[in-house]
Amino acid sequence: MHFDFSSAEPIYQQVADQIEEAIFAGAFVEGTQIPSTTEISREFKINPATVLKGMNILVEQQLIEKRRGLGMFVMSGAQNKIIAKRKASFYEDYVKSLIIESKKLGLSRSDLQGLIEKGYRHE
């Protein structure tokens, strides 16, 4: 986990993103406990209210749940939910920006298609 304090993204959103990424990557396994607000707050010197705000985003998305007196746990099905969410926003997050940037560079549609083909060949 690492926070970029100069990023345009607010810290609470980064907290949510980092935990989501860890669940996606399988570092935080479904059904297991994630680090507590206190642990994250102490380790990165972030106000606990900020950390909690980030965690609440994931609670609302039903990726993690609070178990009274124990802490926050990864909900079952969380990883698939994240994959589905990312697939749904793939066009917005990646394809649109790719086209915008390629236009700025003066690359044509077929140039871009050629580059994607090249990317697959070198994989």
């Binding site: 607000t37 206190t38 707050s41 102490r42 380790e43 010197k45 106000n47 606990p48």
Partner: peptide
């Protein structure tokens, strides 16, 4: 300083 900031947050919680 780092130690103080983490102690502050830990006693605060």
């Amino acid at each position: 300083r780092e130690l103080f900031y983490s102690e502050l947050l830990s006693t605060y919680e």
